[in-house]
Design a protein around this nucleic acid. Structure first.
Lengths: 111, 111
DNA sequence: CGGTTAATTAACTTGTGGGTTGAATATAGA
DNA sequence: TCTATATTCAACCCACAAGTTAATTAACCG
């Protein structure tokens, strides 16, 4: 619905089929047929999912003869990740943990 | 839409109004009226958004007389964050960066 | 009790998401 | 050029999301 980047990204991720497609693409490029193979739905349906992902900037497509290989594009995930991190808390907890680890490293470095 | 937890979470986050509501709740509890105030839409519409957020587990609601204060619940964000992190890469880049920082700390600790 | 405030439920409209099937397009290869 | 393969486009269906207004429930207060 709303077409701001963050909304597009989250909406694209809100479908298990699309998440599975992205997961598959994390292992490397793939054609539409290859991507569609695991799913119990028509090729056209998968093609539509790819369009959604493309509109969200989560994949890009090349052209190799009659194939249109899809590649994962992770840039939009940065914004999504940042948004979530802002509200996920608890930052202090994590800084505390990092603090302890750093102190331990310093101890080990100076015995 | 599919009702697995991850899909519910991402779908809930895919709307700017709902994200704004969550942002507001990060500053503390609020009633439905308070949450609705900034938006140019009916109270009922906001109430529906809250229901979506509640179903996704992103808010919980107490009861104080006729008020139903909403509280931010960040637990579902963990799963979402984890999913994104898995594909966001580049882990190696970040480990490299952390490596450099650790080495620097070790240098400073032992001159 | 009656009135006011807070919030939800109900019924409805409209738009769109996710799926289908069938036709169209583009390219490789015989 | 003709055919097979890969992919998209178009038209359609159904369910639901997001909004509306109107009615209902729940609790406080005079």
């Amino acid at each position: 619905m709303p077409d701001d980047q963050l909304s597009l990204t989250f909406a694209a991720l809100a479908d298990p089929t699309r998440r599975a497609i992205l997961a598959r693409l994390a292992d490397g490029e793939a054609t539409v047929n290859e991507l569609a193979e695991p799913f119990d739905m028509s090729l056209q349906a998968v093609s539509k999912h790819l369009k959604v992902l493309e509109r969200a900037g989560l994949i890009s497509r090349g052209r190799d003869a009659q194939w249109r290989p899809c590649r994962l594009e992770t840039a939009p995930l940065d914004g999504a990740s940042e948004w979530i991190a802002r509200y996920r808390g608890n930052w202090t907890d994590r800084f505390d943990r990092l603090d302890r680890e750093i102190k331990q490293i310093q101890q080990e470095g100076r015995p």
